[in-house]
């Protein structure tokens, strides 16, 4: 699949944003995080900006952005619609939560409830994002068990990384967060490895033979494409990436998205103060870049069944 940058960016940033929103919305009412409103505002603003800019960038590739609002209508069948609805819905309690915190200087019952609701909405939103891809049968690399857990885990991980960084400006030594962050990264890494392992080994459900209902006489090969130049289908879904190129990018993703952040988080765990802040900051940047690469690969390595009509043997 063609890795359109708008979508790559949208999924990573909104994932991180909603995850952070989830952590704050949940952590503060439960007293696991500092009650300082400025911490809350900073965290929630960062979360909001990431989530919103993600959503906005996702409308960039629409043919009719001005009609985007219609996308809220089909929540009964469409995961894309559900994602939109839930995203918007989670902003409401999140906003109440953040403002009341700012206004009253503390989290009280209802606001806390809003926080928890927002948290729930956020998780659900990320879940929907995952399901948009997981529900697409023509793409084996997407239509599998591992996609949704990956989205959740990677979101959670990026949320924790952000939290770990922000929290340090109020709490010199956020041990629990740091430890949880490290764990989240390791868990996400594991899910990603499982995912890669799966797409590398799982059998292709569709073949050039099943796509053409041929094969009785033996192997089926493409002779001529319908048109000599590429069309929309090929530009959008014909994108494919060389094995070795992919392996190289996977390595970069491994290092930037997981290895480096884990190490840096552990460094930040032992060194309090500025050193910790710096380490956590680099961890966030590194993970951010790493996840963009990971997400780019998520598209680039996905092979659509339509390519079977253009020469692919199996997808």
């Amino acid at each position: 699949m063609n890795p359109a940058l708008s979508i790559v960016f949208f999924t990573t940033s909104s994932g991180a944003g909603f995850a952070l929103m989830m952590l704050v919305g949940l952590g503060v009412p439960l007293g696991l995080l500092p009650a300082n409103p400025w911490f809350g505002v900073t965290a929630m603003v960062i979360a909001g900006v990431l989530a919103v800019s993600g959503l906005v960038s996702s409308t960039v590739h629409l043919g009719h952005p001005e009609r985007a609002w219609r996308a809220f209508s089909q929540w009964r069948s469409s995961w894309l619609s559900r994602e939109g609805v839930l995203a918007v819905l989670s902003f409401v309690p999140a906003a109440i939560f953040a403002f009341s915190w700012l206004i009253f200087g503390k989290i009280w019952g209802f606001a806390g409830l809003c926080g928890i609701v927002a948290a729930a909405g956020s998780v659900a939103t990320i879940y929907c994002t995952g399901m948009i891809y997981a529900s697409l049968k023509p793409i084996r690399q997407w239509h599998n068990f591992w996609v949704v857990p990956n989205y959740l885990a990677l979101g959670l991980m990026s949320g924790f990384l952000l939290l770990d960084l922000v929290e340090r400006f109020w709490v010199p030594w956020p041990t629990v967060t740091a430890i949880l962050t490290a764990i989240a990264i390791v868990v996400a890494w594991w899910f990603k490895e499982e995912y890669w392992g799966f797409i590398d080994t799982s059998a292709a459900p569709s073949t050039i033979a099943s796509a053409t209902a041929l094969g009785r006489r033996g192997a089926v090969r493409i002779l001529e494409r319908p048109h000599t130049e590429d069309n929309y289908l090929l530009k959008e879904m014909g994108f494919s990436i060389a094995r070795k190129h992919a392996t190289r990018l996977r390595l970069i993703a491994r290092l930037a998205a997981f290895a480096a952040p884990v190490v840096l988080t552990l460094i930040a765990l032992v060194w309090a103060g500025n050193a910790g802040v710096v380490a956590a900051f680099i961890a966030v940047i590194s993970a951010g870049l790493g996840l963009v690469v990971e997400r780019w690969l998520f598209f680039a390595e996905a092979r659509h069944s339509v390519t079977l009509y253009y020469g692919a043997d199996a997808v």
Binding site: M1, H61, L62, G63, H64, P65, R67, A68, R70, A71, S78, L80, I132, S135, L136, K137, P138, I139, S206, Y232, L233, E236, M237, H304, S305, V306
Partner: peptide, 11 residues
């Protein structure tokens, strides 16, 4: 709205 998702969903 031209989100193209249906073209992804068509095998």
């Amino acid at each position: 709205i031209g989100c193209k998702l249906c073209s992804w969903a068509c095998p």
